[in-house]
Every structure is written in C-alpha cells, then in structure tokens.
Amino acid sequence: MVNATATANGIHLDQETRSKEIVASLRGFLKHQTERVSLYKEFNDAFKEYVAKRMTQEEYATICRIVTEGFVELSIEILALESHLGGHAHASTINVLAPPTTATATNDPSASSGQSSTNTSSRRNYSLDSPEHAQLIREVQLLEKQKLALTVQGQKWVLEKEAQVAQDIRDQEAELQADRVVGSDEENGEGAEQIESEVQATAVHDAEGRTPPQGASAAVANGGVKLTVEEWQAKVDENRNSLNGIVEEINDKLADIQEAIAVLVL
C-alpha cells in the first residue's frame, strides 16, 4: 500500500490520488493488452487464410503491415504507462518481425506517429515511483516479445511443411509417370538400357556437363538437410506447445495485475 502522502519527482501526491493514478495506469495497460490480443487474432486468421490460398500474397502483406503498425503503437503507449509508474525508460519498442513471406511488409512509422505523439504527449511526465507495478507490465512485455518471435517462427515452419507436402506430391506424380513409362516400354519389349539412355539424354546438366544431384542428395550437396513432412509437423507442434506455455505465463501475470488493482481500490 502507498503512504498517506508521497512525493513523485518533486510532486506531492496524497494516497488517494496516487493510488487512483496507479490503478488507471494498470487498467490502461489491460485495455492495451486486450487490443494486442485482437491484433494477434487478426494476424493468425490472415495467415490461415493465406496458407489455405483464400488470400493473396499482397493481401496478406497488407494485413501484416497494418498489424505491425498496431503493435508499434500499442508498445509506445505501454512503455509510456510503464515509465509513468516508475519503470525504466525503454527507448525501443517490441521487435516486430517481418511476416514469413516473400512479400515482406515494411513498417512505416510515419503512418502512426501523429496519433502516438498525441497520446504520449498527454501522459503526465512524472513518475508515480511505483516500480513494483511497473515491473508487472515489464514482465508481460518480455513474454509478449517471446510470443511474437515464436508466432513468426511457427508460421515459417508451417510454410516449410506445406512446401514439403507439395514437393512430395510432385515426387509421387513423377514416380507414377516413370512407372507408366517403364510399363509401356516393357510391353513393347524395350529393355532397361534404352530407358536409362533416354533418362541420360534428357537429364539437366550444369555448365561443366555434370548432372546435378537430385532429391535428398541435392539437399546434402547444398549443405542443407531435407526434413520430411512429419519432421516439419513435429517442429510446428513443438512451437505450438511453447506458445501455449508463454500464453499461460502471460495470463498468470495479467492475473497478478488484476490482483494488484483489487488491493489498491480497497
């Protein structure tokens, strides 16, 4: 509990006023947190639509840009609340990673600078000298940073898995086509030597006349490791479990903030 009177950066505050401002700051953070959850939902829903090919790459990139701008605005507001409560002044916002597509959405800070500067300029420029409450917000912010990184990583792995699924389908179709050719040639009495010569004649060669390695051999030759669909799915599942753990931690921290508010309003 706060004392009957307190001094914040030379400004004399009575207990009731200081408590009310702390509560207002914590409630303001919870409001921003709700907005952040909505942005995450929009981000994840857009990704699902993109993977399902119900959304174009350009449409997905546009939503990613809008969500990124929203994250930045919220982060600026939250950092101002944290500073007002008495936390350290953090110059940088949460690192918003680019969406995992070739159409990387670029963030344009000027698009939201007007509104953000208006909101932050109206914030009182003194500290309430309540670092324990500022720390509650800081802990959520750090968890949210981990959550965002895991979310983007998980989306990249989903795309990798989908790409491998498509490659497996192409490989299966190629094998079926090869089986049809072999079956047809065998019916016509043609031997394996002729089939091999046809393959050699149509093979793609590099500049020195060598046939480049194919399939898994190509992955090894190029310094990469080819993962199966099942292995990609295992990575996606592991990522999802990590995300669920982070979300549980965030919810616990939010419950602590709710409890802190309840204590202050008693």
Score class of each variant (00 low, 15 high):
residue 209 G to L: 02
residue 134 A to Y: 05
residue 253 K to H: 08
residue 62 T to L: 13
residue 168 D to I: 00
residue 206 D to M: 08
residue 46 A to H: 05
residue 67 V to W: 01
residue 221 A to Q: 06
residue 89 A to P: 01
residue 118 T to Q: 09
residue 263 V to K: 10
residue 132 E to M: 13
residue 50 Y to T: 02
residue 113 S to A: 15
residue 44 N to S: 13
residue 1 M to G: 13
residue 224 G to K: 01
residue 126 Y to K: 04
residue 50 Y to K: 01
residue 232 W to M: 00
residue 185 D to Y: 14
residue 110 S to C: 04
residue 187 E to C: 00
residue 184 S to N: 14
residue 45 D to Q: 03
residue 174 A to W: 05
residue 208 E to I: 08
residue 217 S to V: 08
residue 166 A to K: 07
residue 168 D to F: 02
residue 262 A to I: 08
residue 193 E to Y: 08
residue 255 A to S: 12
residue 212 P to M: 03
residue 22 I to Q: 05
residue 84 H to C: 07
residue 33 Q to M: 15
residue 266 L to M: 00
residue 243 L to Q: 07
residue 28 G to P: 03
residue 205 H to W: 04
residue 200 Q to R: 14
residue 164 Q to W: 01
residue 174 A to Q: 06
residue 152 V to L: 11
residue 236 V to E: 02
residue 55 M to I: 05
residue 209 G to Y: 00
residue 60 Y to E: 02
residue 9 N to C: 08
residue 260 A to M: 04
residue 196 E to W: 07
residue 12 H to N: 10
residue 183 G to V: 11
residue 149 A to E: 11
residue 236 V to T: 09
residue 40 Y to E: 02
residue 106 T to G: 05
residue 140 V to G: 00
residue 195 I to N: 04
residue 71 F to E: 05
residue 76 I to E: 13
residue 6 A to I: 03
residue 188 N to A: 15
residue 180 R to F: 14
residue 33 Q to E: 15
residue 207 A to Y: 03
residue 186 E to K: 10
residue 158 V to N: 00
residue 191 G to N: 12
residue 68 T to E: 03
residue 24 A to L: 07
residue 110 S to Y: 10
residue 258 Q to S: 12
residue 259 E to D: 15
residue 44 N to D: 15
residue 225 V to H: 02
residue 85 L to R: 04
residue 136 L to T: 06
residue 25 S to A: 14
residue 179 D to V: 06
residue 249 E to M: 15
residue 125 N to W: 12
residue 76 I to F: 09
residue 83 S to A: 15
residue 127 S to L: 07
residue 64 C to L: 05
residue 189 G to A: 05
residue 2 V to N: 11
residue 78 I to G: 04
residue 209 G to W: 03
residue 61 A to L: 01
residue 4 A to V: 14
residue 167 Q to R: 14
residue 11 I to M: 09
residue 187 E to A: 12
residue 51 V to L: 08
residue 7 T to Y: 05
residue 36 R to P: 03
residue 130 S to K: 02
residue 123 R to A: 09
residue 220 V to D: 09
residue 260 A to Y: 02
residue 212 P to E: 09
residue 147 K to I: 06
residue 26 L to P: 01
residue 171 D to W: 13
residue 215 G to H: 12
residue 222 N to E: 08
residue 49 E to H: 10
residue 147 K to G: 04
residue 244 N to V: 11
residue 86 G to D: 04
residue 42 E to N: 06
residue 61 A to D: 02
residue 144 E to V: 03
residue 121 S to A: 15
residue 195 I to M: 10
residue 122 S to K: 15
residue 155 Q to R: 07
residue 43 F to G: 00
residue 226 K to Q: 13
residue 17 T to Y: 09
residue 124 R to V: 10
residue 210 R to Q: 13
residue 12 H to V: 15
residue 118 T to V: 13
residue 236 V to A: 05
residue 72 V to W: 07
residue 179 D to H: 09
residue 115 Q to M: 11
residue 135 Q to T: 10
